[in-house]
Design a protein around this nucleic acid. Sequence first.
DNA 1: GAGCCGCAGATTGTCGACAGCGATACAGAA
DNA 2: TTCTGTATCGCTGTCGACAATCTGCGGCTC
Lengths: 253, 253
Amino acid sequence: MSVTSGHARQGSVLRVARPSTVDLIAAELRAAIFSGALPVGSALGEVETATQLGVSRSPFREAAQRLVQEGLLASVPGRGLRVSVIAPEHVPDLNEARIAIESQAVRRIAAAAPALDGLEAALAELERVSEHDDALAIGDADLAFHQLLVDTAGNRRLSHYMATLAIETRIASLSAPEGYAVRRTVSPTYRALLDALAAGDAAAAVAAITQQLDDATKRLTGESTDVEMIERELAPPSLQPIDPDRLGGDSAG
Amino acid sequence: MSVTSGHARQGSVLRVARPSTVDLIAAELRAAIFSGALPVGSALGEVETATQLGVSRSPFREAAQRLVQEGLLASVPGRGLRVSVIAPEHVPDLNEARIAIESQAVRRIAAAAPALDGLEAALAELERVSEHDDALAIGDADLAFHQLLVDTAGNRRLSHYMATLAIETRIASLSAPEGYAVRRTVSPTYRALLDALAAGDAAAAVAAITQQLDDATKRLTGESTDVEMIERELAPPSLQPIDPDRLGGDSAG
DNA sequence: GAGCCGCAGATTGTCGACAGCGATACAGAA
DNA sequence: TTCTGTATCGCTGTCGACAATCTGCGGCTC
């Protein structure tokens, strides 16, 4: 981030960007959807949810609009809020959006040739958790890799899109009629992707990420089931109040 | 749209999706930013803006969160809302996001080979308005073409992204230190793009859209000024009430 | 004369309350 | 027994009000 010439414009150095209450609530809701604490398709009573979060209805409703805009919550006038469902037939559209974002990120990385240490570490972590049977942890590591991939491109807008797409991908996985499941073995396309990026081979890198996402899509749409999967039941529904985060230092994510 | 197998799931045919008040307010705000009625960088007093829209602060604040999520409004805790500014140094990031979305749409169109009548008509309209000196109308036709381009790909998510990116592009144009300006002549890349799409040549189509967006970026970042431009002052700030039925006739601006 | 402190005004953030709408359960008629 | 009309309940949508915070201004001190 370059320091601009403005002196009275805005003190981005002095004035730390404090997260607003709405930011905290929205983050908590995203985390709850991501973890399955708020089950896919479930209704969110405003009074109930706001009470669990330790806030009033007003800031909760404002935060909910953030997630409605992202497509993570569905709002039907007069009938309330529901966690979005992404049925198998809608997975290809989600996949195409991810290809759009991630392939562009990959092109940028291949051209700029930044350090890939973080991505190597993320892949190592994915391979590490893949040795165990915690399906949710494997999914987390997978999406963390993809988020870091896009972050490496250095475009805040693409990173922002990817953050939402990651949650949508989780929603699609949780919406699967067969239940949440992940690959037991790490796809070789991850290794191929990093090798291509290290070599600056944009075409090969794009091919790797595209194949990887298309393969995942085929699994979710039921077109392909030739890979051993790990299934898992979900976490119990629970929400943490957001105000303790604000007052004390709670670094749990 | 395919009718799914659910019988008691939801009557998407019977139950028309009515827009909520928040939807209407958000749409009005987007239109006001797009038209310049809400100037770039200007502060939005909650009471003032909500009153102009004919609603209370609560639904306005909820709608504002929609635009904050989109990045069209910037919210600073305790200091209110401002229309976002996209300085020239941030235009390349915006451009890259557009390339990500639009190039993917172009790839999809080249592969699926849908009818291109609408796009031809949109290009004709762009050429028509380019004969006059209404810079804002030219910009409108330009962005309408790109929106239709992405819509033609048939991916709702990509269309949704493009809708926001179009407004952000307008914001970037309005943020230009030299004032809002557009090309006087239609870039030949439009014709090249449609020809490539008609021929199913994905590579050529991607090259055309990429060059087109990169050229526009160079103009906004000041790297290139070799094309004659048309400048224009902006529309006066005015907001229309979103619930005319509800309030009755108040046409004062 | 410049900088700091304190106060007043205005605005935002949050909450409780009320009205309108939809969902549900129940009673009555075919 | 089943369908329909109705009444009740709960929830959402909206509004006004209060408290906390920020901005701007004036006075004071160095």
